[in-house]
Design a protein around this nucleic acid. Structure first.
Length: 517
RNA sequence: GGGCGCGUAGCUCAGACGGUAGAGCAUCUGCCUUUUAAGCAGAGGGUCCCGGGUUCGAGUCCCGGCGCGCUCACCA
């Protein structure tokens, strides 16, 4: 018999023994008088004599993480909300039945303990037990007490174990909750209305990505899991919700990496009568606010790199390319070098001749797309300090307004880079329905050219714009990546509770047969 | 998808040259009424990721596959 099966059987037998003592195997409720973190906070500094004098009674509940048994007495570590408190069980101090229940307690069990606070000889704050109840028995053994659960795959697949074995993991997800709360508070305080828009969409849009496809049986239609809520949120702006936001999941059927999970959480918000300059101001305030709310400081460190959420630089895409142009590829480009495909192509060749690895280059791609690629190759990795990177090529921005007063190949769009991660994307929203139609048509031509991620035509969206959308600025913020920055988590999987993993193989070879490989 | 690495007890890990599979924690038994990874004595626990091959003999070598991590590509 395998060990875990044997332990499982042993513990079922203990469960039966508990019932034989007259206690239900799985009690329905328990009423702690105080939480373990509260005890530590309120009494952690109280001296032994004071505790002895006041004899403070508590009722606590939690998971047993360690047992140090000494025959007729024992110490146990009980954990709740990621914090541990020691309890002391002494045969003379509790009923025989309660002592018997202690004897049936295993590491991993959830127990309730009534007792009073005291300090041991070594000064550790502990609960001197008067009574002990097993609330739920753990039928499976816990990971090793010293190293805990470290196998990354097991941690993701069995996050429930990861969470109670690794307090720092718990802390990351508590912070993630505070990140979301902070964004909400920031926007709620400025009069934004939170909404929910469709996840199941007959047309997908609002981003460049390949979608997941699903099917509705009754309507007998294929639907797409949304890649972005953008086009629905702007319909709401048309409808008069002048400040609107959504924090929800997007789904993109693309690669998985330390920065990409197929489902991820995005904040998108739109503000009528604002342009991208207004959003730049808002962005700087918002990230500083969120960092302060979550970590109590705007300073942060990610992957060994320090930066400050309150200290921003603004660079245009073209400036960033000039600024970070490698010496080896001298001379630095001039603004005029971005003017047409031929000159941009020359830049790429100069960069590639001096730099390895080479950036990919498709001479048939629009110049704007190549410029954006050039930016990624030359500058992106240098953007550690919070940076607003503004003015994007029209070719990769089908939903942004043209840059006012400039040549028509640039739009009013910016992205936010922090710690080398792209965490935000914003623009002055295109609200001219006829121009929007031309942009979609251009996208369709890109699609025919082989770009599977190009936008689809969305006639209803154009109709909405035709009723008139006020001038507006809109922005998307990656919640997962923002959480990575604020918790120094290098992989997006460390900030997503259940990241997508390949399902484990069926247990038997029989089941495996007939599964197409 | 490419490259690199990892996969041995419930967990964390050792296993030179190919020669009967190991440790610590956890579990079980005995002792132990203020311990701190409690201690002492003993016991049980294995599909060495899967499938082939080489060999008298494979955890170890070879081939194929699976899973995971890192990285490059793609993307947010």
């Amino acid at each position: 018999m395998a060990l875990d099966e044997r332990i499982y059987q042993q513990r079922r037998e203990k469960l039966a023994a508990i019932e034989a003592l007259g206690q239900p195997a799985y009690p329905y409720r328990y009423q702690p008088s105080i939480s373990i973190p509260e005890i530590l906070q309120q009494y952690g500094a109280r001296p032994a004599e004071e505790l002895e004098r006041e004899r403070i009674s508590v009722v606590i509940a939690g998971r047993v993480m360690a047992i140090r048994a000494m025959g007729k007495a024992a110490f146990m570590q009980v954990q709740q909300h990621g914090r541990q408190l020691q309890i002391y069980v002494k045969k003379d101090a509790i009923s025989d039945a309660a002592f018997e229940r202690y004897r049936l307690t295993d590491i991993g069990d959830l127990i309730g303990v009534r007792g009073y606070l005291f300090r041991t000889r070594t000064g550790e704050l502990s609960v001197h037990a008067d009574d002990l109840t097993i609330l739920t028995k753990a039928l499976l053994p816990l990971p090793e007490k010293w190293h805990g659960l470290t196998d990354v795959e097991l941690r993701y697949r069995q996050r429930y174990v990861d969470l109670f074995m690794n307090p720092e993991v718990r802390e990351v997800f508590v912070k993630r909750s505070r990140v979301v709360q902070a964004f909400r508070r920031f926007l709620d305080g400025r009069g934004y209305v939170e909404v929910e828009t469709p996840m199941l969409q007959p047309l997908y849009g609002g981003a460049t990505a390949r979608p997941f496809i699903t099917h509705h049986n009754t309507l007998d239609i294929d639907l797409y899991l949304r890649i972005a809520p953008e086009l629905y949120l702007k319909r709401l702006v048309v409808g008069g919700l002048e400040r609107v936001y959504e924090i929800n999941r997007n789904f993109r059927n693309e690669g998985i990496s330390t920065q990409h999970n197929p489902e991820f959480t995005m904040l998108e918000f739109y503000q009528a009568y604002a342009d991208y300059h207004d959003l730049m101001e808002l962005t700087e305030q918002m990230f500083a606010f969120v960092a302060q709310e979550v970590n109590g400081t705007t300073r942060a460190s990610f992957d060994g790199k320090d930066f400050d959420f309150a200290d921003w630089q603004r660079l245009s895409m073209r400036e960033a390319i000039l600024k970070y142009w490698p010496e080896a590829a001298a001379p630095k480009p001039e603004l005029a070098d971005f003017a047409d495909s031929a000159r941009v192509g020359a830049l790429v060749r100069r960069f590639n001749s001096a730099h390895s690895p080479h950036m990919p280059y498709d001479p048939n791609a629009p110049a704007g797309k190549t410029i954006a690629d050039l930016f990624e190759a030359v500058a992106e990795e240098h953007l550690i300090q919070p940076t607003i990177l503004y003015d994007f090529p029209l070719a990769i921005s089908p939903l942004s307004k043209n840059k006012r007063g400039e040549e028509d190949q640039w739009v009013e769009r910016f992205e936010v880079f922090i710690g080398g991660l792209e965490v935000g994307n914003a623009f002055s929203e295109l609200n001219d329905p006829e121009e929007q139609r031309r942009r979609f048509e251009q996208q369709l031509r890109e699609r025919e050219r082989g770009d599977a991620e190009a936008h689809q035509m969305d006639e209803d969206y154009i109709r909405a714009l035709s009723y008139g959308m006020p001038p507006a600025g809109g922005m998307g913020v990656g919640i997962d990546r923002t959480t990575m920055l604020l918790t120094d988590s290098r992989s997006i999987r460390d900030v997503i509770l259940f990241p997508l993993l390949r399902p484990q193989k069926p247990a038997t070879a029989e089941e495996a047969d007939g599964q197409p490989e």
